[in-house]
């Protein structure tokens, strides 16, 4: 297939002709992540980041997937937990969101308190 021709047709909109048919594609976002829409399908596309190591050796711990409020903490430091056990209960957008243990282990620290508004990507709890 020949290289598709791409024509910008308005803020964030592109008309792409791949030789077979034409597609109307919307793209948004600056920097490393672009959001793309075509025919009801939505994806994010990351720019490749050479020089940044992918793997991290540290334990990922337990994080909130989104901004949320801590409504209950079911564990304390030193406590042994089984995989899948509910550690913390968060609430976001009127829904309770149980955070479960990703593996069996011993809780080292609890880095949040009941009532805290927690952000995604921040450890709520560490395992030993």
């Amino acid at each position: 297939m020949a290289d598709p021709s791409v024509t910008a047709i308005g803020a964030g909109w592109y008309l792409v002709d791949d030789g077979e048919r034409r597609w109307r594609v919307a793209v948004a976002g600056e920097g490393d992540t672009q959001w793309v829409f075509v025919d009801g399908q939505v994806e994010t596309i990351e720019a490749p980041k050479p020089g940044r190591r992918r793997a991290r050796s540290t334990d990922p711990g337990v994080m909130s997937p989104m901004p949320a409020t801590v409504v209950a903490i079911h564990v304390a430091p030193g406590q042994t937990v089984a995989e899948g056990e509910t550690l913390i209960v968060l609430e976001a957008m009127k829904m309770e969101l149980p955070i479960r243990a990703p593996r069996a282990g011993v809780v080292k620290t609890v880095a949040c308190a009941k009532g805290d508004l927690v952000q995604p990507g921040v450890n709520l709890l560490e395992f030993e």
Partner: peptide, 11 residues
């Protein structure tokens, strides 16, 4: 994703 979408992202 169709290749067309990726071409639009590149542009």
């Amino acid at each position: 994703l169709p290749a067309a979408a990726l071409a639009a992202v590149a542009e």
